[in-house]
Write a protein that binds this DNA or RNA. Structure first.
Lengths: 112, 112
DNA sequence: AACGACATGTCGCATGCCGACATATCATCA
DNA sequence: TGATGATATGTCGGCATGCGACATGTCGTT
């Protein structure tokens, strides 16, 4: 009996950050760019090409969903993470932890 | 005065693992595939297309160098990491640690 | 009215991964 | 001896993705 988290090809940084941002609260596209910039300490500023391409693929993969926000004052497309997306994020988080652990060990860095 | 570790676009998993493997000891291509498979707990088996493409780019970027191994019994191309490669690996290690920290925090997972 | 921030989207180029293929050597064993 | 499989290095083409540039429009402020 296999668990759902099988596909263990790495998430791109863009997808990882989008899922991380949505893990806290649903949001719309443009706001994600700013949240991710803050989240990454100013290091990552997603271009709209990256963002909307990634959102489309994540909708297709059913890791996120559109949902109706109360605030319809503008034409905002609001996205929400779903359980599959959350599992995928956790899976990739663990993948990265394993990677950093083995690299730190080989570099004799400590902080394992 | 700028430090060398500027380029902070993420390393691909393949490149990260190759640098990690070479951080412990110099090695040749085919042996890297097996070392990385072990290193990653069997999760990652690099194809030769990925490996040799990545090695070529890493040589161009001067993160690794060819060097003469004592064992010349076969035509093995032995590669060694250099200080720039090591810095790049450490930089990406820190990038991933920051990423996992913020994601864990937003997922309310602990283990930060 | 003009400007900048907000907001969503498309297009095309460049890059990188990876399976498939090509080639050759070396050890083992029937 | 000849076949097989592991070792070893490499190329090629297709596919997915990131991202800068462009397009379009709204909203708030001056």
């Amino acid at each position: 009996m296999r668990h759902v988290v099988d596909e263990q090809q790495p998430l791109s940084e863009a997808v990882f950050l989008i899922l991380t941002s949505l893990a806290e609260r649903p949001n719309h596209g443009y706001a994600l760019i700013k949240d991710i910039e803050e989240l990454s300490g100013g290091r990552v500023r997603l271009s709209t090409g990256t963002l909307f391409g990634a959102l489309r693929r994540m909708l297709e993969a059913e890791w996120i969903e559109r949902y109706e926000a109360e605030d319809t004052s503008r034409d905002k497309q609001t996205y929400r993470i779903n359980p599959a997306g959350r599992e995928r994020l956790i899976g990739d988080l663990n993948r990265m932890r394993a990677l950093t652990r083995s690299a730190a060990s080989r570099l004799k860095m400590g902080g394992r």
